[in-house]
């Protein structure tokens, strides 16, 4: 069972999230900018770890795209929060996929930690946005 492709997808998802948080930060309310930056930092750290892991496995880590298509126009604080939720949900899905592509307990642990962190951050953003319920039954599905 070779998790390389799934890890590449997870890395691509991390690239997209980091790009997306730039868009979020440009439209978000001032009082949440610190939280936006903190969330982005989490993904930058995970992106480095994931790229390093792929490198060690002898694979060339995928590069980020120059730009990404947004699922909707991000023009104000509410749409910024909505995008933040989308970013974390998409990233959760990528890491959930890794779980099913490896039997390695250590990598499972890494992927589960990432899935959980994305799901919790999505929940925080939904709560900030006043979206109810703030949780989903099966994060990443």
């Amino acid at each position: 069972m070779d998790p390389t492709d799934a890890l590449q997808e997870a890395l691509a998802a991390e690239h997209a999230v980091i790009w997306g948080y730039g868009v979020v930060g440009a439209a978000a309310a001032d009082n949440i900018l610190d939280r936006v930056r903190a969330a982005e930092q989490v993904h930058r750290a995970r992106r480095s770890d994931t790229a390093a892991r792929l490198h060690e496995a002898g694979a060339a880590p995928v590069e980020p795209e120059a730009a990404y298509e947004l699922p909707f126009d991000v023009v104000d604080p509410p749409t910024a929060l909505q995008l933040a939720v989308e970013l974390e949900s998409g990233c959760a899905a990528a890491w959930r996929y890794v779980l099913g592509q490896t039997d390695d307990a250590e990598l499972r642990g890494v992927a589960l930690a990432a899935l959980t962190a994305c799901a919790v951050q999505a929940t925080r953003w939904r709560r900030t946005a006043g979206i109810s319920p703030a949780t989903v039954a099966f994060p990443g599905q």
Binding site: V120, V136, Q141
Partner: peptide
């Protein structure tokens, strides 16, 4: 369970673990 179960079950069980953290 997520770390030790089959690859087929790991995504479901991982979602359960993540949901618990959110709850």
């Amino acid at each position: 369970v997520c770390v030790s179960t089959t690859a087929e079950r790991a995504p479901l069980v991982g979602s359960l673990a993540a949901a618990s953290a959110c709850h």
